[in-house]
Amino acid sequence: MSSILIIEQILNGLQFGVMLFLMAAGLTLIFGVMGLINLAHGSLYMIGAFAAAAVAGVTGSFLLALIAALAAAALAGAIVEMVVIRRLYSAPHLDQVLATFALILIFSEGTRWLFGSFPLFLDIPDALSGPVTLPGGIEYPFYRLTLIGIGLAVAVGLWALIERTRLGIQIRAGENDREMIAALGVDISKLYTLVFALGAALAGLAGALVGAIQSVQVGMGEPVLILAFVVIVIGGIGSVRGALIGALLVGLTDTLGGVFLPELFKLFMENGAAQKTGSALASMGIYVLMGLVLIWRPTGLFGARA
């Protein structure tokens, strides 16, 4: 197996990982600050993708499509928080799960009603299309490299927001003691709405960016949501740094396992059986990774120790 293929698959894993980070970062903020299990986070990813595809189809501008995705997902998140989620903060987790599952059904049917059941397609902009030559003569899609750069830039910006700004101080304080910051004069309701909208915007951005390399369709957010939960369990609930490291580990494990395990099993069995067995084990790989991390550190890599 060539070194060029290995490097290409590592880059694919990084690209997948940073997109998972955009989902997981919003999810871990919402869960860490509010203590809320939000199963509808994948629907916000879908809303961002559909908003981007619709605006790009009308205007032809990929930049306007990204802005529309951020705005639509953030607005949907803010409305959901004020109308539904605000009533669930003190409710048992089962009530949160049932309510946010109902939101999945509402968003899915509403999107199908607006856009139909057929997938939409979002074209890669001309400026980002085509391959770029990396050191060693490796040709890799420029758009995928751009996704890696955007994801890492968002990670740095989110870290700076949380660690270096007044809003970040309030978010971290709200995670630790919401009653105290409310007593100090912070409007906890506005803070929660802002955090929820920020998390939704990150999910919408991920949906729009990924929508250019796969079809945009109803229900596209749920498989990604499952992986995002795996990411925050590995990284540690409430930790943005943990979300980034966990997302990269999951992305690399899933991508490299899907490519190299079938090749390994070809040494012992026929091509068809090797492909099936290797793909099945690769799908299990991320959950094996999660189990190993939890055995070593039950709160995740960067979660607070009990």
Rank of each mutant, 00 (worst) to 15 (best):
I7K: 00
I7M: 01
L11F: 10
N12F: 07
G17H: 04
V18F: 09
L20Q: 02
M23N: 05
A24Q: 04
T28F: 13
T28R: 13
L29S: 01
I30P: 06
V33F: 11
M46C: 08
M46I: 06
M46R: 02
G48R: 14
A52E: 14
A52I: 13
A53W: 15
A56M: 13
F62Q: 11
L63K: 00
L63C: 06
L64I: 10
L64G: 02
A68R: 10
A68M: 11
A73S: 13
A74D: 11
A76R: 14
A78E: 13
E81T: 11
E81D: 05
R87Y: 14
R87L: 14
D95M: 15
V97Q: 04
L98V: 15
A99F: 08
A99D: 08
T100I: 14
T100C: 10
L103V: 09
F107K: 08
F107R: 06
R112K: 15
F115Y: 15
S117Y: 13
P119N: 01
P119W: 01
L122M: 03
L122D: 01
I124A: 00
P125M: 10
A127S: 13
L128Q: 02
P131N: 07
V132C: 02
G137R: 12
E139G: 07
T146C: 05
T146P: 05
G151D: 12
G157S: 11
L158Q: 11
W159N: 08
W159G: 06
A160L: 15
I162G: 00
R166D: 06
L167N: 00
G168D: 04
I171L: 00
A173F: 11
A173C: 02
E175V: 04
N176S: 11
D177K: 02
E179R: 04
M180C: 06
A183E: 08
D187R: 09
I188D: 04
L191H: 03
L191Y: 01
Y192P: 00
G199K: 14
A200F: 12
L202Q: 02
A203G: 10
A203K: 12
L205V: 06
A206I: 09
L209Q: 04
G211K: 14
A212M: 15
A212F: 15
S215F: 15
M220K: 09
I226R: 03
I226Q: 15
A228T: 12
F229P: 12
F229L: 14
V230G: 04
V230S: 03
I232V: 07
I234Y: 09
G235A: 11
G238L: 08
G238T: 10
G246V: 06
L248A: 06
L249S: 12
L249N: 06
T253L: 05
F260V: 14
M269K: 03
N271P: 15
A273V: 07
Q275I: 14
T277N: 04
T277C: 08
G278L: 02
S279M: 10
A280C: 06
A280N: 04
Y287E: 05
Y287G: 01
I295F: 09
R297V: 08
P298F: 02
P298T: 05
T299G: 00
F302V: 01
G303D: 05
G303K: 08
R305F: 10
A306T: 05
A306C: 01
